[in-house]
Design a protein around this nucleic acid. Structure first.
Length: 609
RNA sequence: GGCCUCGUAGUUCAAUGGAUAGAACGGCCCUCUCCUAAAGGGCAAAUACAGGUUCGAUUCCUGUCGGGGCUACCA
């Protein structure tokens, strides 16, 4: 039996479908439970095995005995013990029972060593492709035209990019789409400002800034002069009815904005397959509304066209109902205003249609702030009424708050621009580089500062639970010590420093995969590092399943800690074979996991820093 | 008012219903004739409150208090 499984594993390794440790253990545990309980075990029962939080109990644990105790009328500890006895000859772990009935598994060093060998031969480092590949559209970032991105855009932009990278790596077909706000009511003001206020020289010099200044000025004046607001609305109407001059200005605004945005996206190493903004769907809106009317999904109310509840959900879960003073009142999704104009909801429905039809998407994920939860519930529910199904997700995230726990603004009430955050991050990193690596050529120092600074911003964002609100803090977002990107980048740098010093044909053979390494793990910190490395295969799929980049970020930090700790206690170059070779292999695997893991987070690594 | 969401060390954040609640920053001690000290090894320090379900609750349920969001013609 044990032999059979070993061969099984060898085969799996060869074809790149190695089971993760918890999967492998769970399968054996379930078999043992079936042998122990016979028919008393529910047919579909499958034991779950999780990584232990506290290593004193072992590497992995299962609570299966406690779960089954009641239904099978067994004492949980006794059931755990009997099951553990059946597992006593398990090849990969030693089994023990503790507490109220936990079954604990301590993975043997030889098992970890075998996994290290397999990982070295696997470009995917043990991560299997998704079983059911999706056609996935991810909608993220989505800034507005003529307004620069501010810190508020950080979350959607960085989280969305990471999800796209993860999904591609898992084998899904991914389309990234920047759904820019290029048709909103703000264009009335921008058009009026362009014609009456805009400084054309300033426009040449810094177009985005010129547009923003103009927009703000018009906005201010409108609040004081209601008649100006009417003039702006008139400009908008002329644009929407196809006025050539206004269309021309509108196009130039988009062009200028895009160019400015692309500079920032380039710096962040974030790119989109498409930029299909709101305006792209203009022609689809009227037919869409007519179709919904014809099918009885929408109807007129107070002159507007609305979608109301169809009564499928309980009132409490119905996105089209709200309770006011004990009564359930309708809150329809308005898809055409009384004045005939279309809205956000209309565009989003048209966008969803297009993505399904044109991109053949079966999955569409929107990385948009939590306040829009109700909007997306309504949109997805309207799709349900139309008979359209799919994996539609609102990947929500919390707000960025100021120290007063209110939406973040600077002292003078301005939002902080994303460009300023990036510049500040690079500048801070530059002064650290200068300090720590004074001998490095200035050019390289600048390059390091950029990678470190931008990495710090991304990692600060990605290491938090996306649903939590967080308090914006320059110190924290741009911190370069502790649980931060440079900590991880430094562990990679340390590996590279070691590898540069090696001139060993045997090691070269290992890197090229032409030799079969002999890995021997004895020191606690070696085993600890190997444990972390082997967990990569478990963490990556889980990160994408829950759309929670912080799981991967936390894992990589844990790996870097294990490496730094190993590095301090286990000399590599000064040790003798086979230890030396094993340690080199661990170093190389650490580098590979960091390289792949960080690339999934969109964070670059350095050869030296 | 109703619905959603959050409340964890001094501070900022973690924790598929699991065991002694993890980190980081800040504070206090150690470690560079040794592969990059952007590092390592220690110490002190927290689940808003009250009930309930459970073998076991930061996690699930109920209530209280406090923050934020949403609640028909903005996006």
């Amino acid at each position: 039996m044990v032999l059979g499984l070993t061969n099984d594993r060898a085969l799996c390794i060869r074809i790149g479908t190695m089971m993760t440790l918890p999967e492998q253990i769970a399968r054996k545990l379930t078999d043992a439970l079936r042998a122990e309980l016979g028919e008393a075990l529910p047919e579909q029962f499958h034991a779950t095995v999780t990584a232990s939080q506290d290593l004193q109990y072992g590497d992995y644990q299962s609570n299966a005995a406690m779960i089954l105790a009641k239904a099978t009328r067994r004492n949980p500890r006794e059931l755990a013990q009997a099951t553990a006895t059946r597992l006593a000859e398990m090849s990969e772990a030693t089994v023990s029972v503790a507490g109220p009935g936990f079954i604990n598994f301590r993975i043997k060093a030889e098992e970890y060593a075998a996994r290290m060998v397999a990982m070295l031969a696997d470009a995917r480092l043990g991560v299997r492709l998704a079983e059911h590949p999706k056609k996935l559209v991810i909608d993220f970032s989505a800034p507005n035209v003529a307004k620069p991105m501010h810190v508020g855009h950080i979350r959607s932009t960085i989280i969305g990019d990471t999800l796209a990278r993860l999904a591609r790596f898992m084998g899904h077909t991914v389309v990234t789409d920047n759904h820019i706000g290029d048709w909103g009511t703000q264009f009335g003001m921008i058009l009026w400002g362009w014609k009456n206020l805009l400084d054309k020289q300033e426009l040449e010099r810094d177009p985005i800034d010129a547009l923003l200044t103009t927009y703000k000025e018009v906005n201010k004046r409108c609040k004081e002069q209601p008649e100006l607001l009417e003039a702006c609305k008139a400009e908008l109407v002329r644009l929407q009815s196809g006025d050539a001059e206004n269309l021309d200005i509108w196009k130039r605004c988009i062009e200028v904005t895009k160019r400015g945005l692309e500079k920032i996206y380039d710096k962040l190493d974030i790119h989109f397959d498409y930029w299909l903004g709101e305006s792209f769907y203009n022609d689809a809106l009227e037919p869409l509304v007519n179709d919904l009317l014809a099918r009885g999904i929408a109807r007129e109310s107070d002159g507007a066209v609305c979608v109301f509840s169809d009564g499928t959900h309980a009132p409490k879960d119905d996105p089209f109902l709200v309770n006011k003073d004990g009564e359930w009142q309708p809150v329809p999704a308005i898809i055409r205003k009384a004045d005939g104009a279309f809205l956000y909801a209309t565009t989003d429905l048209a966008t969803l249609d297009y993505r399904i039809r044109h991109f053949q998407a079966d999955s569409i994920w929107y990385v948009v702030g939590a306040p829009q939860e109700k909007h997306f519930k309504q949109i997805f529910d309207i799709e349900r009424m139309r008979g359209v199904t799919g994996d539609f997700r609102h990947v929500a995230f919390g707000s960025i708050l100021g120290k007063d726990r209110r939406p973040f603004k600077t002292r003078d009430g301005e939002t902080v621009s994303l460009q300023d955050v990036i510049d500040e991050a690079i500048q801070r990193a530059a002064s650290v580089v200068e300090n720590k690596s004074p001998d490095m050529p200035a050019e390289e120092q600048a390059a390091v500062a950029e990678v470190v600074g931008i990495g710090a911003i991304k990692f600060a964002e990605l290491s938090q639970n996306r649903l939590s609100d967080y308090i914006f803090d320059w110190e924290k977002m741009l911190s370069l010590s502790g649980d931060t990107a440079p900590y991880l980048q430094n562990s990679y740098v340390r590996v590279r420093a070691i590898e540069r010093k090696i001139d060993d044909p045997e090691f070269a053979a290992l890197l090229s995969g032409s030799s079969k390494p002999n890995i021997l793990l004895t020191e606690e910190r070696e085993i600890n590092l190997a444990r972390s490395l082997s967990r990569f295969a478990e963490v990556v799929p889980a990160t994408l399943d829950d759309c929670r980049p912080n799981l991967l970020a936390a894992y990589l930090y844990e790996l870097a800690r294990a490496f730094h700790s190993f590095y301090e206690a286990c000399p590599v170059l000064r040790s003798e074979n086979p230890t030396r070779f094993s340690r080199l292999a661990l170093c190389e695997l650490t580098a590979r996991v960091l390289r792949l893991g960080m690339s999934l987070l969109g964070i670059r690594l350095l050869e030296r820093m």
